[in-house]
Structures are given as structure tokens and as C-alpha cells.
């Protein structure tokens, strides 16, 4: 679904991504972990076509939707209006399927998005992305600022969408434990380069990854 080869992205003279390669297959859940400033959001914005590569190749097959970092809801609009705009590119803007998938949003549908709690906003951001009926979902920092219980609920939703509909997911996370638990494969991005990759189990077992991202002694 997502195929990135030797991708380099620059902001002026600064190189944000330097020869990054990664892939996400159909129905796969893949994590991208790394510290702040590693280039994760740059990769996201390039995948969505908001940034142009300086070199390398990005190809996305199928519909891609993004849940951006910081949620980025349209604060003055209601939950329902936010959801409808998620399907801006398409014709079918019926929001009822999303309320069936995420029933906790139904009672909030006429509330302004700016007035919701962080967890509710993240749920709306996920719902808005699902409105475009994506085949691959990119989620940037899903867990940031959210209570563990809320994060667990979101993770369950993703697992279910993946299991029932084969939704492919690229999960970009600072919370490596969550990412490795949820996804089958993972990449580690540091200073604009992929420094490790493999199955989640292998990465979780690697001393350097465990020490740097899981808070365990190597």
C-alpha cells in the first residue's frame, strides 16, 4: 500500500529525511518509532503529498487517510461537520457508518469539536479519517496526551478495523511499547534515517531498542 524508497526530504539546507525506505503491505499494521525531531512528521507529510521529496520515491496505492499529530480538528465546526469534511474528496458524506464504528461519538454529534476532551477529539480525528473509506491509515502520535485507558480503546478500534476490513495502518508513535504491541512490524527512525527494522518481537528483544525506547536496561 505504501512504498517508500531512498526518500530524502530537505527544508532549505537542512536534511529532514536521508535515504529512508519503508513499506506497508495490504492489511499490515506497521509502526514507525523514534524520538522527537527524527523526521517522523516529515515522512507523514510527504506520504500525504504535502511535502515534495528532494530525492527518492514515494508511492501510495489505494486511498490513504491521515490522523494528524495534535488531532487538528476544525474547532468551530461540530463533530458531525468535521466527519462530513473527512469525505470531502468523495461523494458519500453519510456519517452514520462512523457512528456505528465509534458509537461514543453519536451523542456528541452536534457538539463543537473545540469543546471536546482530548480523547474525544482523537476519536473524532480517527472518525474523520475513516470517513474517506481509507485502505491505509496513517496515524501520527495517536497516544500523545491521552490517558492509557483511552489509548487502549483506540488501539482496540484499530485492531478491529484491521481484522475485519483489512485496513492497513502505519502508526507513528513515540510510545514504542504501544506501537510494538499493536503492530507486527516496525521501523526505528533516528535523525532522518532508519536505524533498525524488523518484526515487533525482534525489535522489542533487541538490546539497543529496548534500552532507548522501552525504558529497559540493555
Amino acid at each position: 500500500m505504501i512504498d517508500v524508497e531512498e526518500l530524502t526530504v530537505r527544508y532549505g539546507a537542512a536534511t529532514a529525511l536521508d535515504g529512508v525506505s519503508l513499506s506497508v503491505g495490504r492489511g499490515e499494521m506497521v509502526a514507525l518509532i523514534g524520538p522527537n525531531g527524527a523526521g517522523k512528521s516529515t515522512l507523514v507529510n510527504t506520504l500525504c503529498g504535502l511535502l515534495k521529496p528532494a530525492a527518492g520515491r514515494v508511492s501510495v496505492s489505494g486511498r490513504l487517510a491521515l490522523v494528524p499529530e495534535g488531532r487538528h480538528l476544525f474547532a468551530p465546526l461540530t463533530v458531525d461537520e468535521n466527519l462530513r469534511l473527512g469525505a470531502w474528496r468523495g461523494r458519500d458524506r453519510d456519517t452514520s457508518p462512523v457512528y456505528r464504528l465509534l458509537p461514543s461519538l453519536e451523542p456528541l454529534r452536534h457538539r463543537r469539536a473545540g469543546r471536546l476532551s482530548g480523547g474525544e477529539q482523537q476519536m473524532v480525528a480517527l472518525g474523520r479519517a475513516l470517513m474517506s473509506r481509507p485502505e491505509v491509515l496513517v496515524i501520527d502520535e495517536m497516544s500523545l496526551g491521552l490517558a492509557p485507558l483511552v489509548v487502549a480503546g483506540l488501539a482496540d478500534h484499530l485492531r478491529e478495523r484491521n481484522a475485519t476490513e483489512g485496513l492497513a495502518v502505519l502508526l507513528i508513535e513515540q510510545n514504542a511499547r504501544l506501537a510494538l504491541d499493536l503492530c507486527t512490524r516496525a521501523y526505528v527512525l533516528e535523525a532522518g534515517r532508519v536505524t533498525a527494522s524488523g518484526t515487533s518481537a525482534a525489535l522489542a528483544g533487541s538490546d539497543s531498542v529496548a534500552a532507548a525506547y522501552l525504558g529497559l536496561e540493555g
Partner: peptide
């Protein structure tokens, strides 16, 4: 109208507007 909402959305958060394809 959705067009009006898209206009409001563009003002509220241009980045998010681009993310949803506006």
C-alpha cells in the same frame, strides 16, 4: 452547505483542511 463548512474549515485550520483534501 459542505462548501461553506469547507470555507470555515480552511480558516480554522489550513493544515487540517489540506489533510482532508480541501
Amino acid at each position: 452547505t459542505d462548501l461553506g463548512r469547507a470555507l470555515t474549515a480552511t480558516a480554522a485550520d489550513p493544515y487540517a483542511a489540506r489533510v482532508v483534501g480541501i
